[in-house]
Amino acid sequence: MLGRFEYARPQSVDEACRLLAEGGRAAAVLAGGTDLLVDLRNGFRSPSLLVDVKRLGELQALKTRSDETVVGAAVPLNVVVENRELRKAYAGLSDAALSIATYQLRNRATVAGNLCNASPAADMAPILLVLDAELTVQNAKGTRAVPVATLFTGAKRTCLVPGDVVIDVRMPPLDGELRTAFRKQQRIRGHDLAVVNAAAAYAPSRATLRVAVGSCAPTPVLLEPFDTKGTSPQALADEVLRAAAAATAPIDDVRASAAYRRAVLPVLLRRLLADVVSGRGGGI
């Protein structure tokens, strides 16, 4: 048994918000449970109420239109991985999702859960940062948009408050070609958490490049956009590496030493830039 707690499966988002508001800090949203249930088993958290949002219709959306891309908060990662439209539009997003855990886990785990868990190593974070994604968040008081860029406030901490339910993750409209890619350094080829991960989105028409890095700071880090106009690939890479080094502060932990992280971060970034600049990252 994973502990003593109550379980509720609300019929509507409103009901979910109400239950969560009543429960306050002692209540937790349950999506795929692949983070939350592990925390319960290990005794890291002991909420008294789990509010299961997986079957709420609003959280099942999956839209990939050029004007709007929406991934519902209860959509399992495998659905993201296998969606062809998504892959065509955002290869980096599909690759990031595919890099997470195992096939079995991805049938449960969600994009929203990955973000809300706010691990510094969360694999969906860098790609959603570079895509300027926003979460639609609802609570008893109403609905608001929370940019992923403002979500993380510390290791395992977000700006969400008790009572909030993430409804979906939205990508802004695509205007023109966008090339995205994701890379992850792990200890073993089998399932592993990232030692370092990073994502890039390159819009050739606007000559902008966005890069985000994970596992090298208390939160995933989005670098300031890079203007690629008139910059040689080499100069661009140097600039990205400099910015990444300045914005991160890798630490030693059981997964890797700070030194190793510092050594592979530039490698990962160079390869990532090759992916998007050479077009391997796909696009529309």
């Binding site: 200890r187 073993i188 080829r189 089998g190 399932h191 592993d192 958490l193 059981v254 997964r255």
Partner: peptide, 29 residues
């Protein structure tokens, strides 16, 4: 050869007592 080994902290506590941080070969390896 490639991955396995106990890691202890300075107080002699095992830092990787689970599959999260003690990796054994999978079908991908």
């Amino acid at each position: 050869a490639l991955w396995e080994g106990f890691r202890f902290d300075k107080e002699g506590r095992l830092k990787n007592p689970s599959f999260v941080d003690y990796k054994i070969p999978t079908a991908k390896d």
